[in-house]
Design a protein around this nucleic acid. Sequence first.
DNA 1: TTCATGTGTAAAGCTTGCTTTACATGGGCG
DNA 2: CGCCCATGTAAAGCAAGCTTTACACATGAA
Lengths: 64, 64
Amino acid sequence: MNNRVRELRGERGWSQADLAAHLDVSRQTVNAIETGKYDPSLPLAFKLAKLFGLAIEAIFEPVD
Amino acid sequence: MNNRVRELRGERGWSQADLAAHLDVSRQTVNAIETGKYDPSLPLAFKLAKLFGLAIEAIFEPVD
DNA sequence: TTCATGTGTAAAGCTTGCTTTACATGGGCG
DNA sequence: CGCCCATGTAAAGCAAGCTTTACACATGAA
């Protein structure tokens, strides 16, 4: 699963810690998602989509 | 998180076992998602969306 | 140089997602 | 009645998501 989280975060000038605070998760979780260590849960994917004002499909892409 | 999986499955005349086979998961996993025991992973949500020809947002709704 | 900030990573531990096996119930059909 | 099918649920176990604490490194500013 590829994602555009780092790019979208960068557009807003946010640090990983800033984004983590907005999502109410740890900074390590944001880092793990950005670096592809694991995929977010579905609820967290929805939080990201809402925060960035995008559809989940516009942020995440199943790589198969 | 509410979802329309049971409804969408019903429209196709599929059993939980049928849907599970299409998704390559166990029947118990389909049942657990339909009965709200837990949410699917993001990759499984993408599989459901693709199978039903819908956006993830059209199947799942964060209840908050 | 010293310090703060941002990022990457690691370990231990808890919770959630998913598996296999198994049993119970209800409905329809012979 | 006896049988099949669909569904619900439970237990045990493994994998994935997320936490806290902690350390390393790079960059930029004082």
